[in-house]
């Protein structure tokens, strides 16, 4: 059985202390529902939320309106068909969907191939000791991350945008901003260090 509108409402009205993390967890739950139960209602919610954002992302990378809509439809179709590969313990819905959109852009627009690690590779190495357990719950981590992104100084946020959303190399970002490559590298490093700290600790 799949998530009814009632249970969606239940999700929406969980305790106030969870309020801040609500929508991240909700989307990850929706995607897990698509994965385990082929739930159309959950897919609909994901579509309404992500379709306009994927289009915005592709436009930022330079695709025109028509192409960005075509790629978006392909991305969302993949979300439906490949939901079995989503692992809610490893990533949020947004990170997973970002990766699909990034890869489709590389395939279709850059006509290039992207190599991915095969999670079933016999050569895959694992940590000797499990990752430290001090980590926050996914919803808490994501909302801490979002708060930290919004608090970044403008020059660091700008570099982050060009790198992750526009998909520029650091050299291209430096050229765009008319600043030295090393300045781009140091702004990015500072930003990533801050975000990493906030994702790991309260």
């Amino acid at each position: 059985m799949c998530l009814s509108h009632n249970s969606i409402n239940d999700l929406n009205t969980r305790g106030a202390e969870r309020e801040l993390h609500r929508d991240v967890e909700e989307r990850t739950v929706f995607l897990a529902q698509v994965k385990t139960r082929r739930c159309k209602a959950s897919y609909e919610r994901l579509y309404q939320y992500y379709a306009p954002r994927i289009c915005a992302f592709l436009r930022q990378k330079g695709a025109d309106e028509r192409i960005s809509q075509e790629i978006m439809q392909d991305v969302m179709t993949r979300v439906w068909h490949k939901a079995d590969q989503f692992d809610e313990k490893k990533s949020s819905a947004s990170a997973w969907i970002f990766a699909i959109a990034r890869n489709r852009f590389i395939d279709v627009i850059r006509q290039s191939k992207r190599s991915e690690v095969d999670p079933n590779d016999p050569l895959l190495a694992h940590r000797e000791e499990p990752a430290p357990d001090s980590r926050l719950q996914q919803g808490e981590r994501i909302s801490a991350l979002k708060a930290a992104i919004s608090e970044l100084p403008g020059d660091q946020a700008e570099v982050l945008q060009l790198v992750y959303l526009s998909g520029m190399t650091q050299q291209t970002a430096a050229d765009r901003l008319s600043i030295p490559l090393n300045t781009v590298k140091s702004r990015l490093r500072l930003a990533l260090e801050k975000l990493r700290r906030r994702m790991e600790y309260v």
Binding site: R53, S94, A95, K146, L165
Partner: peptide, 10 residues
């Protein structure tokens, strides 16, 4: 990728 996903949301 989580950072990029959070930026996609925004």
């Amino acid at each position: 990728e989580e950072i990029a996903g959070a930026m996609l949301d925004a």
